[in-house]
């Protein structure tokens, strides 16, 4: 190769490499990916108790650094002999959406962009076809004549399609019936979001933002600890509350008492009583065979 063509080749190569380097220049701002600790973090089910302790501490430090609030992050395990069931009384629900926002507050959901686990549908009397539902209703006051309201959130299916399709086991069903997500294991393929017949899963399309003053510091690993960009999340029946015996936040805020929750294996629980005594209860899209643990019912 002679000198001139060598120069020519190197000029093209050099400018090409310069353009290549410049094209990657936005990566300068990439601080979310750089932590080696996070990169090599193990799968939830493979963490030893000792490692879990370390991870929880690391998460507490990260939250404190990011939000200036020291949280208390716990790894809560399912209780023995407990299977959670939710029952929602469609006769009582007035469509006020308080559950939506209480959930956002309890579970540290992103405010901008907005992530909400509960979607309330305004439905015309006489039909349970969700395609007739209105999502953006904003009247002066609710309820409105001729309509009923149907809040939809994760139905905690017994046969969850989202768990089946996840390519990396990042989402699974716990023994108490709650389907959880390991936010540090999810690869963000959104196959579960496509698979869910209830539109119950949410994706972090960008870094979530929560104002400092609205952080809930009582956190659980599989529950409401802050998520990062690029992973899925979903309703987990407020694991940080229910696994210490409390009611979920959406239930406690409901002004109409339309929401009922409890252990179906306990015959004295409210939900056992409801499923025993109410004549009709509905599993949404029952024909799909997902077998939800979330029941809708009507009474007088």
């Amino acid at each position: 190769m002679d000198r001139r063509s060598f120069l020519r080749t190197s000029a093209v190569l050099a400018s090409g490499l310069a353009a290549l380097a410049a094209s990657l220049s936005p990566l300068r701002k990439l601080d979310d990916y750089v932590s080696l600790e996070r990169f090599v973090q193990k799968y939830y089910k493979e963490l030893t108790p000792e490692e879990m302790k370390q991870v929880l501490k690391r998460i507490e430090n990260e939250v404190e650094r990011q939000y200036g609030i020291r949280p208390h992050v716990r790894d809560l395990k399912p209780m023995d002999g407990v299977e959670y069931v939710y029952a929602l009384n469609l006769t009582r629900c007035i469509g006020c959406r308080k559950c939506v926002h209480a959930c956002v507050q309890e579970n540290n959901l992103s405010r901008t962009p907005e992530i909400q686990y509960i979607r309330v549908l305004k439905m015309p009397h006489g039909s349970l076809d969700v395609e007739k539902g209105e999502h953006n209703y904003a009247p002066e006051s609710v309820p409105e004549k001729g309509f009923f309201y149907m809040p939809v959130q994760c139905q905690q299916c017994k046969n969850p399609p989202c768990v089946k399709v996840c390519p990396v086991h990042a989402t699974w069903q716990e023994t108490d019936g709650i389907t959880v997500v390991d936010y540090d294991w999810c690869i963000g393929c959104r196959y579960c979001e496509a698979a869910c017949p209830y539109w119950a899963r949410r994706f972090n399309f960008t870094q979530p933002s929560i104002p400092k003053e609205r952080i809930n510091p009582d956190m659980a690993y599989l529950g409401n600890r802050p998520r990062r960009q690029g992973v899925m999340e979903k309703c987990h029946f407020c694991i940080q509350r229910t696994r210490v015996g409390r009611y979920p936040a959406c239930l406690e805020v409901c002004p109409a008492g339309a929401r009922k929750f409890g252990n179906i294996l306990d015959p004295n629980s409210e939900v056992s009583y409801i499923l025993r005594t109410k004549r009709v209860f509905i599993q949404l899209k029952e024909e799909l065979g997902t077998s939800p643990r979330f029941f809708y019912y009507f009474d007088t």
């Binding site: 007035i94 959406r97 308080k98 926002h101 979607r119 209703y137 904003a138 002066e140 006051s141 609710v142």
Partner: peptide, 11 residues
């Protein structure tokens, strides 16, 4: 049960 204003809808 009294009626009330609904909380803001989704964005």
């Amino acid at each position: 049960f009294p009626s009330r204003p609904p909380a803001p809808g989704p964005h």
